[in-house]
Design a binder for these strands. Structure first.
Lengths: 173, 173, 173, 173
DNA sequence: GATGAATGAGTTTTCATTCAT
DNA sequence: AATGAATGAAAACTCATTCAT
């Protein structure tokens, strides 16, 4: 991975996240990345290849996060970590998440591949905590996380931290 | 509003919702609506004007819904109605909602104009129910609704009805 | 000639003069004239018909001017009147002249139909005044008039009146 | 400046001069230049950019001519050279001049940037020749030149050479 | 690996013109 | 006489992609 290659990925990610995939032209990516337009195609085959490279890049970091949670033992600790996940997205990872969420609304581009691993983590937690409907409770948490992520990524309100505390209280965490 | 004008709006809405705004060409809209491409521009000025007409159209229907909730008296009844709002989106309104949610992720296209009226409805409810942090609770409900809407509009799981019941139980509704 | 018909002619003339014939759309003419677009075509057949109507309109006024000069007897008086012709264009006739001059540079639109009558007036004048080359002198005056008209119609300098006086002096008028 | 780029400029100039700027489509320019239409926009941004490139191109050649006159010493020699300027336009420069003169009649397209340098040349000449009103005389010469240029560029008469001689005689050149 | 000229197929938009009312 | 909805063809412009260097 050369420096220019990385600059392309970085620029494309930020533009795709800001303006959307199809509203971003390869020429704009090239211009802002300071490389020739041809280079994008040499390295990534085509525009979709560029998107895939970006997603692949991010998915790897994602796996790391999932694994770190998987290793935990205490159910409440796991639940706490899962719920606060959207809050722990740090500044330089935001474009990636924004892109991911935006793509979900674009048909046939992205498959929801992190939904199942999340369920696999949550169901055992609610079972351990003796909730009546572990699967349903898991889904509810995922709904909550989705909502939280939206609010955070779209900067809709500042007090997400407080909302998190409120949720923690409701789950007695 | 002539018949062709309406057909354009309808077709555009369904295509924008399915494939995204910028991935949908005006020529495709015209073809599927069975009108000449020029007509789109004669009636809506430009592609963005078409989008705005669609959004304006939808916003009006939205106001009707908000108003119907506003007129209710019983706090719990209001809360129930608000929470189940995402579930009451009927089939022919789905494209509008899908478009709206997709646009939120595109910068500068859509302003979140229904977030405040919603707060105005919810805060008094939680005050009446003697919750400690009415504003925070309102925001949490909105987070929940956002998550629910996503799940429904993206058909991620079938048992949203069950999730709703679970939420009702948690709010003792 | 109805009132709307006249308003179309007037508006078209001023727009054609300001922006050029092909850069002016019939829709803009209709809009500024406050009539429906269809009306232009009902009255003038097509865009070129509109132009021709404007030109025909103006040519009539032109003939009146030529005739008034033709009736004069005194050679110097004629020469004086001819030379100051460009200066006597009054404000509301300027668009017509501007259009006429602009059209000359557009191939195949306008034939230079006032060049010959002018020569017919000038040659006898210079013969009467005993100039050596009456035809050449006539052409020179026409060159001068062309230059003057440009300067006036394009508002290039304010002291056209002084230039006229200078020319008068040179021709001992 | 690649060969295709030059071919575009050349073709565009000749078409703009012949048919007018707005009556000439970029697709026609591309076709006649034997290039793809996109190339025009890649090199010149938009249609107006193409026009500006043409004008800039011509203005440079213009400066060379002005400079060559500026270097002369003898006032009468300068006056002679200035007056015969319109006659020295050679065949391949004619389209440029025709375009320039045509554009003057189109509002906001062309600023009369060569009028002042011309005055700077002429006023000292008439001062040196002891004319009473050097500035006015300069303007008159420019009026004359404008008229001459029109006559030449629009091929209105063949004996411009004779007219020039007549003018020379009047200025005792 | 990198550039940037070049393309062709498309996209958005404009426009003269027609036609039912 | 007048409107304004509608069209089809063309205009301006964009864009993903290729290729010679």
């Amino acid at each position: 991975m050369t420096e220019k290659q990385e600059r392309i990925l970085e620029t494309a990610l930020s533009l795709f996240a800001k303006d959307g995939f199809s509203a971003t032209s390869t020429s704009k990516v090239a211009r802002e990345a300071g490389v020739s337009e041809g280079l994008i195609f040499r390295h990534f085959e085509n525009k979709e290849g560029l998107l895939n490279a970006i997603l692949e890049n991010g998915r790897q970091k994602l796996t790391v996060i999932f694994d770190s949670i998987h290793h935990l033992e205490e159910p409440k600790e796991i639940l706490r970590r899962v719920i606060e996940l959207p809050l722990t997205i740090d500044e330089d990872q935001r474009p990636f998440w924004k892109l991911l969420y935006a793509l979900k609304w674009q048909a046939d581009v992205y498959d929801d591949s992190m939904s199942n691993p999340m369920k696999d983590i949550l169901i055992p937690v609610f079972e351990a905590l003796n909730y009546h409907q572990p699967e349903l409770e898991s889904e509810l948490v995922m709904v909550l996380m989705d909502g939280m992520a939206s609010h955070i990524l779209l900067k809709r309100s500042g007090n997400v931290e407080d909302i998190k505390e409120l949720i923690f209280k409701k789950y007695d965490l």
